[in-house]
Simulated scan of single mutants.
Amino acid sequence: MIKKLHQMGVKSGHMYSAGLASIALSFGTWLMSKNAEQGAGLDRADRWGIFIGEWAPTFFALGVALRMEETHRDLEEPDMGVFDGAESTRSRTHAGV
Rank of each mutant, 00 (worst) to 15 (best):
D79G: 07
G53H: 03
N35A: 15
H72E: 12
G19R: 04
S88H: 15
E69C: 07
G19F: 01
G41E: 12
M8I: 03
D74V: 00
G85T: 08
D84P: 00
D79N: 05
G49Y: 04
R90E: 15
I23Y: 08
S12P: 03
T58I: 10
S17M: 04
V10K: 12
G85N: 07
L31K: 11
K11F: 10
T29I: 15
M1G: 12
A21F: 02
I2W: 06
R47M: 07
G9I: 07
I50M: 03
E76A: 05
S91N: 13
D84Y: 01
G41M: 07
P78Q: 00
L20T: 01
R73A: 14
A21G: 04
G13D: 10
G9Y: 09
E54M: 14
R90Q: 15
T71M: 11
D43Q: 00
T93L: 12
G81A: 07
N35S: 14
G39E: 13
E54G: 03
L66D: 04
F60N: 14
F27Q: 00
A36M: 12
S26E: 06
I52N: 09
I50S: 01
A95H: 10
A40K: 10
Y16F: 09
G53L: 15
I52Y: 06
A95G: 11
G96W: 07
A56K: 01
S17D: 11
L42C: 02
Y16V: 02
V64T: 01
R90S: 14
A65Y: 14
A21W: 05
A40N: 02
D43A: 10
M80Q: 06
G49L: 13
I2N: 10
I2M: 13
S88F: 10
G41Q: 10
G41K: 09
H6V: 01
G19Q: 12
A21K: 04
A65G: 01
